[in-house]
């Protein structure tokens, strides 16, 4: 059923990665991705590969969930690898077809590019599997709080509030869409058959009621928020505060060590 879709794909568990402060996870992810792109060759890619595998293991998220993520972007991985296959400019020529030549360095390059995307996806999915959307929202609000110096704290608050409300209303709107679809089907609407144009046309009687009801909901929500003394976040104090622990420091330290490893191999080889 539509209602059961898991947005943000959080996987409930109690691993060390789950317990880390969401801000640490976001910052470490950014760091790791930057260094992933600083790798110069397939040899220095060994470091982030080992690092990613270790993170995946301690996150206690089942491997098949990660494989599912890779499966969805498999076409992109294959496409990138094939393109790069022909970009080898040194090494022994293995095959020449028409204008294209495949060399040993081309093969290495293809593997390097492909595995870099795989590692990128794996690392990012660790964040979304181990952190609830609410925690990510709170972390973003907290990480962006330095915007205060540019007098943009209001914009940051609004962004966080919008994300919170969006997360809250996704299941509600999905349920509503289902209701409207059933109502239109009961009136004889055909949503599954016909050519593409016809199917798009059939969506209009679903989207319009959905839009109208969302606007009405927004209006009611605004009134309810006003009744709860909301005035745009001025003087608002959050009940839950994110707290760094020693584990966060260790996580950051270990990841920085790995990044150092990448630099070392880059310069040595």
């Amino acid at each position: 059923m539509l209602k059961d879709i898991t947005f943000g794909q959080y996987y409930e568990s109690n691993s060390i990665v789950h317990r880390l402060d969401p801000r640490t996870k976001i910052l470490v992810l950014i760091l790791d991705i930057v260094f992933l792109f600083l790798t110069k060759s397939i040899y220095s890619l060994i470091v982030p590969a080992v690092q990613t595998v270790l993170i995946l293991i301690i996150s206690k998220v089942p491997a098949k969930m990660f494989l599912r993520n890779i499966k969805t972007i498999l076409p992109i991985i294959i496409f990138t690898s094939i393109i790069n296959l022909f970009y080898g400019n040194s090494g022994t020529v293995l095959l020449t077809v028409w204008y294209f030549t495949i060399t040993t360095s081309g093969i290495l390059r293809a593997v390097y590019m492909g595995s870099r995307i795989i590692l990128l996806i794996l690392l990012s999915s660790v964040l979304t599997y181990t952190t609830t959307p609410n925690d990510i929202t709170d972390a973003i609000e907290s990480l962006l709080s330095f915007m205060r110096i540019f007098r943009l704290q209001n914009a940051v608050h609004m962004l966080a509030m919008m994300m919170t409300i969006a997360l809250r209303f996704i299941p509600t709107l999905v349920e509503e869409t289902e209701k409207i679809m059933n109502a239109q089907k009961a009136r004889g609407a055909d949503l599954e058959n016909g050519r593409l144009i016809e199917r798009i046309k059939a969506l209009i009687p679903i989207l319009i009621p959905l839009l109208i009801s969302s606007v009405r909901r927004a209006y009611e929500l605004a009134e309810a928020m006003e009744c709860r003394c909301y005035n745009g976040g001025v003087g608002r104090v959050r009940m839950k505060r994110l707290k760094y622990s020693w584990a966060d420091l260790w996580a950051a330290f270990i990841n920085i060590m790995f990044c150092g490893g990448i630099i070392a191999i880059n310069t040595l080889i």
Partner: peptide, 28 residues
């Protein structure tokens, strides 16, 4: 109000109940 769905702000019960007190600027 009438429709409970249109009054709740946060997707976790306790975060939602905290919305009012947070707006009043109370300590955590």
């Amino acid at each position: 109000f009438q429709n409970p769905d249109n009054q709740l702000v946060a997707s976790i019960v306790e975060d939602d109940v905290a919305f009012g007190p947070e707006n009043l600027g109370l300590t955590p």
